[in-house]
Design a protein around this nucleic acid. Structure first.
Length: 970
RNA sequence: GCCGCGGUGGUGGAGUUGGUAGACACGAGGGACUUAAAAUCCCUUGGUAGAAAUACCGCGCGGGUUCAAAUCCCGCCCGCGGCACCA
């Protein structure tokens, strides 16, 4: 008989691949009678190295899903294409002196060969290539739509220039201040760049996340990247100037605590103020030095804050009219908010650090609420007395010990504490209380410690609720001179010295522990929620209420308003390289002067005229030399015949834009093209767009959850807003796979020489084994290390599946085993459920168990074999097609119906119960599943080993969990 | 620093609405077949003690809740990923 190895050796897999292609098994058209399913994977970048074993992980997963959906009767679109513009190809072409176009063509051909070798059910009639003019015509068309709606604009902006790639980078492409791609140095350069106004969509991109089913991590990363913060913008007047300093703050409730202001060194106002700055030299020097620092240096040096005061300049705090100093410092970023802040050192860590360093005033305006212990919670119906308390840390003159109180009746253990009386300062009160309660007289030093806090509690010794406002004071005694203590003062507590190392365990009142921690760990800004104090009309309000009230006040006075801010920046959309989509705009000096403005884009960018749609695609010109230039101009800028053109509007002399689009452009809309890839009058027809709608399931790498996902959602939302696509969100569901690491647990890379080539694996074990092993390796969303031993194991499994044929005896009587049938139905359910939740490894394990079971029973009916093949076919399509055919089934297994399990086979009639005694397993019972509780308990208690453990003890309780266990408590 | 994910045999990993920890696979050991090897088939395989029945210990560490905890709660340790002077 032919073995599985024979099948592989006779190119059995190839045979089926050719058959699928000839019969167009996986080609689809819009079919209103069927429910559609659109499964998408990120299309690969066709590098010269070809596929490595990392690629097939997402592809196989989505192939399994697509194949199953197809068998379930869905109209499945599972497309593939190539994202082929970009630097690696261009650099390789430069090195080898070839044309990027030719290199790309070859690479794509190699990728297609490898992908076909793996037996994916792609619709090969829909392959797209982003470098094909028939494709990028529509990338250009969509860009013009952005332009026409005023969302593309040219701006002279400091860009991030990578010295080694010779290319400007988007903010998103910088990782820790270095180039994401090559790790090289990035410097700031001023350059005219096309920008896309993605920030206009910041809110929409954020809100859209609530409507889609993405893995949580992807949502979190996207929303971090968008970085929305809610607050207010408001103006501070400058003394003797008309100009105002506008600031953004998330904490308008702390305005009374704003004790100075900081401008970023690049702030435009500095130019206007310069005649009044008394220390202009110093300021200018600081500005210069800050400008020289790269982003990397700025972040690295963040520990140590620097800055210079603008002498002679004072700002006025609008809530209290107070004059406050103005500084410049590079901890304030020019690019965020308004580039200026109000500093509230008491409630912002950075301002606190800065204020400490430069000795600026720190004013507390929010008090933390410290909850009282459970037993001291305020009692209803009791009067509440507001009282100021001082907590005093009294340090022994010689030893490192503190005077503490032990309140025997209340069960409190605390530092010295007492009330502050009217007219007293906190320090006065602390000294008085210290003398009254300890008798000590002479102090060496005294300091306030930390901030004021509030506590609400029931004071049993006075039978009232107290709302305590407390501060802590640290006192170091000078000597041990001690006066007589009035017994009245100490009737509730005993005093004693506690060593510093015992303090933590001794003190049990939460508010005292709070100050103990500050004493131990040092003071810091209080940035949490609390109660407004020292804030006039905000006093006693909670954070949210105070923010609301302050914003209302600012709006009423006309000096500020509610405002949201985003971390997200507009998208730098031009690159100075050859191998990208040309930007279809020309600059016409004539139209810049007198032209009529036909769109928002032309209003925003005077002189920039879009090409007529009939002149698209604007093809990349053929050039011999396309090396990047050192001056930062695109290589196209040197080509007169490309640059010099006529204006599509007035016919006068004009110049083409010579920058090209970034790598991300082609992938920002590609799934739409899959719906209608050959359309030459639109990027896709309305019919196709309406039929295929949203991508039902998009799987891709975690590395793309910020950039590609955000950009493509942005394009889709824009196209939706202008009525071009039916859904606002492009992808209904997004999942991610983990990386496949090399055998050594490292990332696969050419330089490490640990790359595994799929061609070799397919030659050795077959595509089915490779596919299935990749799915079996480990949890789909986690990283897993490659192991060829594991792959061997899967191959062995297929040998066993192949040899199942031996158990089928079609000539003889119908060999039907109820046990096997039950096993198969359980497996059908498990495999079906697991595929839906990406549990491929457990689905395969279940099928292995099933096959092992059949080997034990050595009996299999033909229909049963058919079901086994069907559920295995999404993983191993070639082998199962072959066996399907050999078993005499008609047609392709790829479109055979997915088997349906029968519920009746899922319920067991006999179950194994565990009997526990005091939580330990002592016996097992084989019983009918529907046995009564009484019977089961009786049986359990009669078990020999149970009797042994229960003997001589009282049975307190017997618990029966149906179908699972009996638990005896003795 | 903040946010997120994870830590289970020699290995990859199952099991997380609390209920037999270690499914499945790899590796290892033993056996059958063979002149021999490979392949294949069968058995054993968390640790310790024991011939066995069985007992005790075991899911990063320390506590807690519960008849019962890998799973829930509190406090830590380690690894990975994202963000990071964003006001």
């Amino acid at each position: 008989m032919k073995t599985y190895n024979d099948f592989l050796q006779e190119s059995g897999e190839k045979k089926w691949q050719e058959k699928w292609e000839a019969e167009k098994t996986f080609e689809v058209t819009e079919d209103a009678s069927k429910e559609k399913f659109f499964g998408l994977i990120e299309f690969p970048y066709p590098s010269g190295a070809g596929l490595h074993v990392g690629h097939p992980r997402p592809m196989t997963a989505m192939d399994v899903i697509s194949r199953k959906k197809r068998m379930e009767g869905k109209n499945v679109l599972y497309p593939i294409g190539f994202d082929a513009f970009g630097l690696p190809t261009e650099n390789y072409a430069i090195k080898t002196g070839r044309q990027p176009k030719d290199v790309t063509k070859e690479n794509i051909a190699n990728f297609i060969r490898q992908l076909k070798m793996l037996g994916y059910s792609f619709d090969w009639s829909r392959v797209i290539d982003t470098t094909d003019p028939a494709y990028y015509q529509w990338t250009q068309d969509i860009f013009l739509k952005f332009f026409e709606h005023g969302l593309a604009y040219k701006k002279n902006t400091p860009i991030n220039w990578c010295l080694s790639c010779k290319i400007g980078l988007a903010n998103e492409e910088i990782v820790n201040g270095a180039c994401e791609r090559c790790g090289g140095t990035v410097e700031k350069r001023d350059k005219e760049q096309w920008m896309l106004a993605i920030t206009k969509y910041a809110d929409k991109l954020l809100e859209g996340l609530d409507t889609v089913d993405y893995i949580e991590r992807a949502k979190i990363q996207q929303s971090n990247w968008i970085g929305k913060s809610t607050g207010a913008e408001l103006d501070f007047a400058i003394k003797n100037f008309e100009e105002k300093i506008r600031v953004f703050t998330t904490r308008p409730d702390t305005l009374f605590g704003a004790s100075y202001m900081v401008l970023s060194p690049e702030h435009a106002l500095l130019e206007m103020l310069k005649d009044n700055i008394e220390n202009l030299d110093e300021v200018a020097a600081y500005q210069k030095q800050a400008g020289l620092k790269s982003d990397l240096e700025r972040t690295e040096l963040q520990k140590d804050k620097t800055g210079v005061e603008l002498k002679g300049i004072k700002a006025i705090n609008p809530v209290n009219g107070e004059e406050i100093p103005v500084w410049i410092a590079d901890y304030v970023l020019a690019t965020y908010g308004t580039g200026a802040i109000m500093a509230v050192p008491a409630h912002d860590e950075r301002d606190f650090e800065f204020a400490k360093k430069f000795d600026l005033p720190i004013r507390q305006v929010v008090a933390e609420m410290i909850p009282s212990a459970e037993k001291d919670i305020p009692k209803e119906g009791k009067e509440t007395v507001r009282r100021q308390n001082v907590i005093v840390l009294v340090k022994h003159p010689e030893e490192d010990a503190y005077f503490c109180l032990d309140w025997t009746k209340q069960g409190w253990t605390s530092f010295v504490i007492g009330g502050k009386e009217n007219g007293e300062t906190w320090e006065d009160a602390a000294i008085r209380e210290m003398k009254e309660e300890t008798g000590y007289q002479n102090i060496k030093s005294i300091n306030l410690l930390g901030f004021e806090t509030h506590t609400n509690f029931f004071a049993a010794h006075k039978d009232v609720n107290r709302y305590g406002e407390q501060r802590a004071v640290y006192i170091e005694l000078a000597d041990d001179e001690r006066a007589e203590v009035d017994p009245k003062e100490v009737k509730n507590h005993d005093g004693k010295w506690v060593k510093v190392e015992d303090l933590h365990d001794f003190i049990n009142l939460d508010n005292h522990i709070y100050y103990y921690n500050i004493f131990k760990e040092g003071e810091k800004a209080f940035t949490g929620e609390g109660i407004a104090i020292n804030s006039d009309f905000l006093n006693d309000l909670k954070k949210e209420e105070a923010i609301e009230k302050m914003i209302a006040w600012l709006e009423e006075k006309g000096i500020g308003e509610k405002k949201d801010n985003f971390r997200l920046r507009d998208w730098v959309f031009s690159r100075q390289r050859y191998w990208g989509e040309p930007i279809p705009l020309v600059y016409c000096p004539h139209c810049a002067e007198n032209g009529e403005r036909k769109s928002k884009g032309e209003e925003r960018n005077p002189g920039w005229i879009p090409l007529d749609r009939k002149d698209l695609p604007l093809e990349l010109p053929h050039v011999e030399k396309y090396e990047p230039t050192d001056n930062g101009d695109s290589p196209l800028a040197d080509m007169r015949e490309f640059v010099e053109t006529t204006c599509p509007r007035c016919g006068g002399e004009a110049k083409r834009e010579t920058d090209t689009m970034p790598n991300w452009a082609g992938s920002s809309w590609y799934w739409l093209r899959y719906m209608d890839p050959h359309n030459d009058t639109a990027f896709a027809s309305k019919e196709a767009l309406n039929y295929w709608g949203q991508v039902d399931w998009y799987n891709g790498g975690m590395e793309h959850t910020v950039l590609h996902l955000l950009y493509s959602r942005f394009w889709n939302q824009f196209l939706h807003d202008i009525g071009e696509v039916p859904h606002s969100e492009p992808y209904a569901k997004r999942t991610s796979h983990g990386l496949i690491l090399a055998q050594d647990g490292e990332k696969m890379s050419k330089s490490k020489g640990n790359v595994v080539n799929p061609d070799d694996m397919v030659a050795k074990f077959g595509a089915d084994a490779l596919r299935t092993y990749i799915m079996f390796m480990g949890p789909f969303d986690q990283h897993v290390a490659w192991s060829e031993e594991g792959l061997k194991g899967v191959k062995k499994f297929f040998d066993r599946v192949w040899n199942l044929q031996e158990f089928i005896c079609s000539e003889q009587a119908y060999l039907f085993s109820e046990d096997v049938e039950r096993e198969i139905h359980k497996t059908i359910k498990k495999v079906g459920d697991d595929i839906e939740v990406l549990g491929f490894n457990t689905a395969i394990a279940r099928m292995m168990e099933m096959v092992n079971f059949v080997y034990k029973k050595k009996a299999l009916a033909k229909e049963q074999f058919g079901k086994i093949l069907s559920i295995l076919s999404p993983f191993a399509p070639h082998m199962t097609e072959e066996l399907w055919e050999k078993s005499g089934y008609e047609g392709s297994i790829s479109i055979a119906p997915w088997p349906v399990y029968d519920e009746k086979y899922l319920v067991e009639d006999m179950v194994t119960l565990v009997v526990q005694v005091n939580g330990k397993v002592r016996a097992k019972l084989e019983v009918a599943a529907d046995i009564s509780e009484e019977d089961v308990k009786a049986l359990a208690l009669a078990e020999e080993n149970v009797v042994k453990w229960v003997e001589g003890k009282d049975v307190r309780k017997v618990i029966y969990v149906k179908g699972k266990l009996v638990s005896v408590v003795v």
